[in-house]
């Protein structure tokens, strides 16, 4: 199980990194193409914006593993350990509720786009595909979040150390 999850994170990270490289390259060469060669990429902005959406959502589950999502810890951390564990469970329920709501609303939104068939003006890429990364990513976020929280709340420190090693 752990192996499968780690592999999943790895795939997301590599995919997101590839998109970041595309984004950087397309922007940098876009400057050269416009300034030096007088032939700007007409599709540049469409690609940039799509890359940004994909990076934001693809890297979001990874950010759970690197603990990069900021939260205000001051109040909760002031409670004793035992109470903190209870709060962690409460937070977990809230996170599930929020992400699951987001998941179903995003399916609704994507289905509207699929129905109207709106496409990007120049490359004619369907928006349902560009934004489609969101519901997929939300599922992955749920998985990553569960994995990290279970590790933190339910495993003893000793088990955690073993896991890390």
């Amino acid at each position: 199980m752990k192996k499968v999850l780690d592999a999943l994170v790895k795939v997301e990270a590599v995919l997101a990194a590839a998109i970041l490289v595309i984004l950087i390259a397309c922007t940098f060469f876009g400057v050269l193409a416009r300034y030096l060669f007088n032939s700007p990429f007409t599709w540049e902005e469409e690609v940039q914006v799509a890359c940004m959406v994909w990076i934001t959502f693809l890297a979001a589950p990874v950010a759970f593993h690197t603990k990069s999502h900021v939260a205000i810890e001051i109040l909760v951390d002031a409670f004793p350990q035992k109470v903190q564990r209870v709060i962690e469970v409460l937070i977990m329920i809230l996170m599930y509720a929020i992400l699951i709501y987001f998941f179903f609303r995003s399916l609704e939104f994507i289905s509207v786009l699929a129905r109207t068939g709106r496409k990007t003006p120049i490359l004619m890429a369907p928006y349902s595909v560009i934004y489609g990364v969101a519901p997929v990513s939300i599922i992955l976020m749920l998985i990553s979040y569960t994995y990290e929280t279970v590790k933190k709340v339910f495993l003893t420190p000793a088990q955690n150390e073993k896991e890390e090693a």
Binding site: R34, N38, S39, P40, T42, E44, E45, E46, P121, I122
Partner: peptide
């Protein structure tokens, strides 16, 4: 001919000026 003219990022506008012989540059 070959002059760089800015157009809104829409295929119709861009191709319209390319057809006139200019180099259409979509830009904010």
């Amino acid at each position: 001919k070959g002059k760089k003219i800015r157009l809104a990022s829409s295929q119709i506008y861009v191709e319209g000026f390319n057809a006139l012989g200019a180099t259409a540059v979509p830009m904010a």
